[in-house]
């Protein structure tokens, strides 16, 4: 289904064509060069600025809500019209100097505060999931590609199994039957458990090609140990692929977290999350469209910025490695 992370490269694709950032000749593109290229691209800059705002919002959430005056869990019964079933006073969902993004219908919680705190949840979960899938994917991909034989067989079968699994159904089922406990940690674990094979597959294929290259042969002949071969010779050449695959997977994880919260199995209330806000806005969308539009817009813009940025980074790295 569409919420789950990056798309599936099929076996043939990986082995025939090789994915983004094929380990070609030449030195890997330097971080400075990537940043320099991005800084000169207007669209990329715009996305960076928006993401910076979202991240700052997430980091300084308590400070920001002090300034705006309302916390995420404070009820403002004065801002809603209890005679009309709790529709916010005023137009546009109650947007005013008091409540910058209006209020939630029925209980009058400040939407701005909930968006700010929701950013915390989305960003933390997506970044943790990215780091965890990154580590799992690289480690298992390297192991399978470098040692081959039964190690490769075992890891590849586990990957086949995980990729055949209807991940979304399973994530929902497992999250709904587990005790509430620490939901964010559970979400990260579940998302990563099903996400790592997509990265590992690419890393495995590229490690296989790299392990046969002359410079690895040379290092081996001059007495380098396996550990050194993997970390000093092969891993640096995989940097491009790892950067591209992981940046492109972040928006996927943001979407997955929001999707799971939308389906009611993500972060538990009263903790605010964008997906959950959209989910609770469903029953109100014909009378109070702003309640839906605000978290929807933030979710969309965040995913869009991350996608555009990932795309730009990929083209910079591809161009760098082609020359």
């Amino acid at each position: 289904m569409t919420v789950a992370g990056p798309r599936t490269p099929t076996l043939l694709e990986v082995e025939e064509v090789g994915l983004a950032g094929d380990p070609g000749g030449g030195p890997p593109t330097s971080t400075g060069r990537i940043l320099g290229k991005l800084a000169r691209d207007k669209a990329a800059l715009l996305c960076l600025v928006f993401l910076l705002i979202v991240v700052l919002m997430a980091v300084f959430a308590p400070l920001i809500t002090k300034l705006s005056g309302w916390g995420p869990d404070e009820f403002d019964s004065g801002a809603i019209n209890s005679d009309l079933g709790g529709v916010p006073h005023g137009s546009l969902g109650g947007i005013s100097g008091e409540h910058w993004f209006g209020v939630e219908p029925q209980n009058g919680r400040d939407l701005f505060a909930r968006i700010v705190y929701g950013a915390r949840v989305s960003i933390t979960i997506a970044l943790s999931a990215t780091v965890l899938t990154g580590i799992l994917g690289v480690v298992f991909g390297l192991l399978a590609g470098f040692y081959r034989g039964w190690v490769d067989q075992a890891i590849s079968r586990v990957m086949d199994f995980l990729m055949a699994f209807p991940a979304l159904i399973f994530m929902i089922a497992i999250l709904s039957s587990l005790p509430a406990g620490n939901r964010p940690v559970l979400l990260v674990v579940v998302i990563s458990a099903f996400g790592w094979p997509y990265l590992a597959r690419v890393i495995r294929g590229q490690t296989m090609t790299l392990a046969n290259r002359e410079f690895v042969e040379a290092a081996r002949a001059s007495g380098a140990k396996n550990v050194a071969l993997v970390f000093r010779e092969i891993l640096p050449n995989l940097r491009g692929s790892i950067i591209v695959m992981t940046t492109l997977s972040v928006p996927g994880y943001i979407g997955t977290e929001a999707g799971l919260s939308f389906l009611g199995v993500g972060v538990t209330p009263p903790t605010a999350s964008w997906g959950q806000m959209i989910s609770s806005s469903v029953s109100w969308y014909s009378v109070d469209p702003m309640f839906f539009a605000i978290p929807g817009t933030f979710l969309f813009l965040t995913v869009l910025s991350l996608t555009v940025l990932g795309d730009k980074i990929r083209s910079v790295i591809d161009a760098g490695e082609a020359t």
Partner: peptide
């Protein structure tokens, strides 16, 4: 195309429903 990839499908579903049905 980049924009379209970034819209979560439940968001799109609700927007379409609001505009076309309501």
């Amino acid at each position: 195309a980049l924009t379209g990839v970034s819209v979560p499908n439940y968001v799109l579903a609700l927007v379409l429903q609001y505009v076309l049905v309501v």
